[in-house]
Nucleic acid binder design. Structure first.
Length: 606
DNA sequence: TTTAGGG
DNA sequence: CCCTAAA
């Protein structure tokens, strides 16, 4: 808190490049951060010059920090809203926010997101960085980005809301869930029930927040007490009466310090989530967790993830992830790298382009504040089907590994230089599977909006906090035909199940690809087949277990107990559809065939 | 490519 | 979950 760092030229350049012209915002260059608590105090005045914050400003900022700790989420939210409004008002490409109130507000938001993205940039040395970076930045100033941002906002909640109407009940808690009274162990259970994965985090607050996020489909869980009712967080303290005035404070030359606040990160990740594609979303989530870890809350959790060491599989997936996930954004990222001051950064972070989704932890050597510091990075590796080519390749050439390695290495170097390797381009093209863009989601959610209880949760953005951070267990199963096939297992989270149920209710069972596309756009894993299988299982479970209501619930460990409410819904849907399809066919046939055909079916019985 | 069903 | 036949 005592350090005031001047933003680097590179950052300045970046902002200019990205065309930011808002009168003032705060820069952050986490690179210089030596202590994960806060940082960067820089003031920017109208002409874009950077001025190191003075001690006075520092004090001022400290005051603000107090506020921010509590109100950050609100600030961000209102800022968003404001941004939307002002953008709608002046869609003419005049993104400037005019009212002084609005100015300072959005300014703050922008600053926050900016900082966060900067932080992300640091924490997530991936190609996604620059794009997400730009994205966020733009969303702050250009209207176009706010639109897609608005859509998923509704859609996200709409999809999950419908089915949450049956509250997730953890057998112990009905209706109202009060996380405050739970022990850590209980919180762990709830956590698992909510996200389908275990956590080793022992921090109650963290758990509560996380769970609350999951249950409320919102990131806005920065309250200090956690009582969840009707999927909404009941806050004891400060009501929403707080009206975004406080922070506005109408400071033209505002120096804002941003701490590594969970709220901010959550908000950011949610914002990113809005319009980023899956992998980036994952990154966001990872960052959140990672950050928590850096706050020594989830250290062990991270440690758990670090266990697995890179294997052949890793290499394989690595290369695949690179080609598959990286492709879409790689263009953009290289582009942005192009106009970036220079790749001194890039050199500092060789791990950057390894893989967007890599879950494997790589510690990269980074220079933070002049010290060489090992920064653990969590990457996710895209789950993928085994590639026959690769395995074949590896079999044939003992050097197969080597090849793959060089391939990857190229990925490293690709950076600014163009990809000279034709084959690589080819791979990229071939493998590039542009994930379903948010737009689709938006459109869909718009037209699918049902008048039910959707409205209330409208504004809440849902980030499946467990989402992609959960481990994917890869188990190798020996197969008869000599090969060994890998079995990926990814526990279905409650939210996924709910999405699925809702998807089925909307589009009907059997239209898996539709459901996958529309309701699971953000889950790049979960193929339509997966959905189908899951539904099949749900069906089985619902019919098998509904009679004895406690069946699955009493069973503790086996697998995540699916809330009875959901099973009920499943059964209803199943029956509905059974009756929806059968009568149609039978009536059709009967009416068409008339009485003549009666004999054919069951002559003896009639 | 997507679905359905078996393993 | 994976695999595969059929559409």
């Amino acid at each position: 808190m005592e350090k005031v760092v001047e933003a680097e030229g590179s950052d300045e350049g970046k902002f200019e490049e990205t065309g930011l012209e808002t009168s003032n915002f705060v820069l952050s260059s986490p690179k210089n951060v030596t202590d994960p608590v806060v940082y960067k105090l820089v003031r920017v005045d109208g002409n874009g010059r950077l001025v190191p914050a003075t001690d006075d400003e520092l004090m001022e900022v400290e005051g603000l920090l107090e506020n921010e700790k509590r109100e950050t989420h609100i600030v961000a939210d209102t800022g968003q809203a404001l941004g939307c409004i002002s953008n709608e008002v002046s869609p003419s490409g005049m993104p400037q926010l005019e009212s002084s109130e609005g100015l300072s507000q959005s300014e703050n938001t922008e600053a926050d997101t900016e900082k966060l993205s900067a932080y992300l940039e640091e924490t997530v040395p991936s190609g996604a960085k620059s794009s997400s970076d730009d994205h966020v930045t733009q969303s702050g100033r250009v209207g176009e980005c706010l639109k897609p941002l608005d859509g998923p906002l509704e859609g996200g909640s709409s999809t999950s809301t419908g089915c949450i109407s049956s509250k997730p009940d953890f057998s112990k808690l009905k209706g109202e869930i009060c996380l405050d009274n739970l022990s850590i162990k209980e919180l762990h259970e709830v956590f698992k029930a909510t996200f389908g994965r275990d956590t080793t985090v022992k921090d109650k607050l963290w758990l509560k927040r996380r769970i609350a996020m999951g249950l409320t489909n919102s990131c806005d869980v920065s309250a200090t007490t956690f009582v969840i009712k009707d999927n909404k967080l009941v806050k004891k303290d400060n009501e929403d009466g707080f009206n975004n005035v406080n922070l506005g404070a109408g400071k033209e030359h505002l120096a804002v310090a941003v701490e590594y606040n969970e709220d901010l990160l959550n908000n950011l990740s949610s914002q990113i989530d809005e319009h980023q594609t899956t992998s980036e979303v994952r990154l966001g989530n990872n960052v959140v967790e990672n950050n928590f870890a850096s706050e020594d809350l989830a250290a062990d959790q991270r440690a758990a993830k670090r266990v697995r060491k890179p294997t052949k599989r890793y290499i394989e997936e690595l290369s695949e992830a690179e080609s598959k996930e990286y492709s879409g954004r790689s263009i953009a990222s290289t582009k942005s790298i192009g106009f970036r001051p220079l790749s001194s950064k890039a050199h500092a972070r060789p791990a950057r382009n390894v893989s967007l989704e890599g879950r494997t932890v790589i510690t990269r050597l980074d220079s933070l504040g002049g010290f060489g510091i090992q920064v653990p990075c969590v990457y996710r590796i895209r789950r993928s089907r085994p590639r026959k080519n690769v395995t074949a390749l590896l079999k044939f050439h003992p050097s197969g590994m080597g090849m793959t390695a060089t391939f990857i290495k190229k990925g490293f170097d690709v950076h600014g230089s163009q990809m000279d390797n034709g084959s690589m381009n080819k791979v990229l093209e071939a493998k590039s599977t542009p994930e379903q863009a948010p737009e689709q989601f938006v459109a869909e959610s718009k037209k699918e909006t049902t008048p039910t209880d959707m409205g209330q949760n409208m504004g809440l953005k849902y980030v499946d906090p467990s989402g992609d951070t959960s481990d994917d267990n890869v188990v190798t199963v020996p197969t008869a035909k000599g090969g060994i096939r890998r079995k990926h297992h990814r526990a279905w989270t409650l939210s996924e199940v709910m999405k699925l149920v809702e998807g089925v209710s909307k589009y009907g069972a059997g239209r898996w690809s539709e459901i996958k596309r529309l309701a699971f756009a953000s889950y790049s894993y979960r193929t339509s087949v997966d959905l189908k299988d899951k539904w099949r299982n749900l069906l089985k479970a619902s019919f098998a277990q509904t009679p004895t209501d406690k069946g699955a619930n009493s069973r503790k460990h086996p697998s995540m107990p699916i809330p009875a409410s959901i099973l009920l819904r499943v059964r209803e849907l199943a029956e509905m559809q059974a009756q929806a399809s059968l009568p149609n066919l039978s009536t059709g046939k009967l009416s068409a065939c008339g009485g003549g055909s009666v004999n054919e079916t069951r002559p003896g019985y009639l």
